[in-house]
Write a protein that binds this DNA or RNA. Structure first.
Lengths: 158, 158
DNA sequence: CCCAACTCTCACGTAAACGGCAAGGTTGGG
DNA sequence: CCCAACCTTGCCGTTTACGTGAGAGTTGGG
């Protein structure tokens, strides 16, 4: 009943410390991300243990990359990935309807979200590139001064 | 006596709220960055007011970019820029000595730091690019499904 | 069935990066 | 010289992103 069904992910389910180790996070962080609505385990055991599948792992990896590499806050990541609640609704809705128009809408929605993600990342890349360019400029200045010194006093070098 | 001298920066000096406004930071943050050793005002007034010059503004801009765009922590930024203390020592040392060998060493040092900065930024760019690629992969999959639906049920669309 | 290892949900503690206030000092135009 | 607007150094408060138990329950191999 808490099972995330779906057409994929028939592999085995993992417990929280397993996925945490896999993506190099702590169980605490994974639970915290769930608390913020970043993801929801594929299932729960009878004893209410969180159980994760491969897609959860991928999602966690993506979250970690967004946090570590892109430096987004968890709040921003929540925006980018949208609440897991909304995502699940979208997924369920897709399989609940046979209406192709509705399915179309959902797919276009998903496409738009991917485009948004790509755009945010691209923007970040551009800014970083600008910083690289600037730093290279300074580097060139320093390198020039080295050349000056090197050619002016040309004798004491090893 | 607290003046940062140097051959450049003869422009006028600004007070903390001016530079803060200029680089879109709060005076509080600027003081905090100083506390962490990220920068030091060019001078102090008689009444001990912090006074900044144009190079300080540039430095602050760079710091902000590293924080906002690259997502580095202030501690990491401190590493990248090295303690202002060390920087100042290097600068003073450069002008204190006339020994070309010593000057050479200082310049090569500076060059190495630039190279390190560039490398860190490049690494970050590569990771972001990898994320873009991955997201584009997913996007392509969704786009394909849209095409399927579009050609299979080709009549109900507006 | 037993027990070690794992998990659950509170709940409080912490480091980073500031925000905001207090109590007092400084600046500079009128 | 006066005063509004700015600044100073403390110092405590807050948010984010977790760490760290506490107390109780679950799992699974022997």
């Amino acid at each position: 009943m808490t099972t995330k069904e779906g057409p994929v992910a028939a592999g085995r389910l993992m417990r929280i410390h397993e996925v945490a180790a896999e993506v190099r996070l702590t169980p605490r962080s994974v639970r915290y991300y769930e608390e913020l609505g970043l993801l929801k385990p594929a299932a729960r055991s009878d004893g209410d243990y969180r159980l994760y599948d491969e897609t959860d792992v991928e999602r966690l990896r993506f979250i970690k990359a967004l946090r570590d590499d892109a430096g987004f806050s968890l709040a921003e990541i929540a925006q980018l990935l949208e609440d897991e609640a909304a995502r699940e609704r979208g997924h369920a809705a897709y399989h609940a309807t046979t209406d192709p128009v509705e399915r179309m809408r959902i797919l276009h929605d998903r496409l738009a979200r991917f485009d948004h993600q790509i755009e945010m990342l691209r923007t970040k890349i551009e800014r970083l590139q600008a910083m690289v360019d600037e730093t290279e400029g300074r580097r060139t200045g320093t390198a020039a001064r080295i050349n000056e010194l090197e050619s002016s006093g040309a004798e004491s070098a090893r």
